[in-house]
Design a protein around this nucleic acid. Sequence first.
DNA 1: CCTTGCCCTGACGCCGACGTCAAGGCTTAG
DNA 2: CTAAGCCTTGACGTCGGCGTCAGGGCAAGG
Lengths: 142, 142
Amino acid sequence: MRIGELAARAGTTTRTLRYYEARGLLPARRTDNGYRTYDEGDLKLLRQIRTLQDFGFDLEETRPFVECLRAGHPEGDACPASLQVYRRKLDELDALIGELTAVRAQVGRQLARAESARDGLAADAAVPGGPEPVCELGGRQR
Amino acid sequence: MRIGELAARAGTTTRTLRYYEARGLLPARRTDNGYRTYDEGDLKLLRQIRTLQDFGFDLEETRPFVECLRAGHPEGDACPASLQVYRRKLDELDALIGELTAVRAQVGRQLARAESARDGLAADAAVPGGPEPVCELGGRQR
DNA sequence: CCTTGCCCTGACGCCGACGTCAAGGCTTAG
DNA sequence: CTAAGCCTTGACGTCGGCGTCAGGGCAAGG
């Protein structure tokens, strides 16, 4: 099959496939006229790449899986190098989720504080100096 | 104070301050010789920006906070536009954390499956066709 | 006068994963 | 013959938030 068909069957674009080839991730055979040719095995490799990409893996991180499949394994994660990538990714995800959760809590507190400050200041109760200045963002919005 | 001092006091770089100015976020007055001049208020604005940046806010998302401070409010989140940004960010964070958590679970399952498959295949028990192919990644590493 | 240490503008580099043109070749149907 | 619809390479654009020169100016101390 040619590049357009493979791209369509994998739900991606020809540009992406040429990019993978340039990166050495998914090399292609060529026909006489220079057209790239792929087989079902390439589709499988490609699907493995896309799945991992969907999980947020970098392209380079998919390489062990692809090489594992190319080495004849039925699953891309049958090789130690792939498992290593899994474990590293889990650590990264845990760290990231932890950070984001902390940030979420912090932002949540800020919002609560700001809202209560706003409520508390209603009727200019806590501002002896007069009414507080007002944001002038009325007219045009982006 | 000049740009170098402000940068140092805020723990950032002069390049960053010039960038903020170019983006219209933190304009500077100028001395006769063209040097940028800042005051304590600018330091406050800058700290607000950096804090939000540390939370993962885009530069554009900090703008309402900066304008709020510039409008005379003691807090950058005293304005409705800032609160809107908070809320949007919370939604984004929740969505992102949710996705990442789902991915983490999925990757965790893949790892468990791959590991158990590996264990199960120990001693070539489940491979009638002979020993499984081995990943050849030995020689050179990146 | 010269060096040192600030400051200035302008402009390219970076990173990742492609998108999007440009300019052209092959093949097949009409 | 020609147009349509594939394919080719090459190369620049995108996005954010700066880093890093290059080439120069200004001010103060020795």
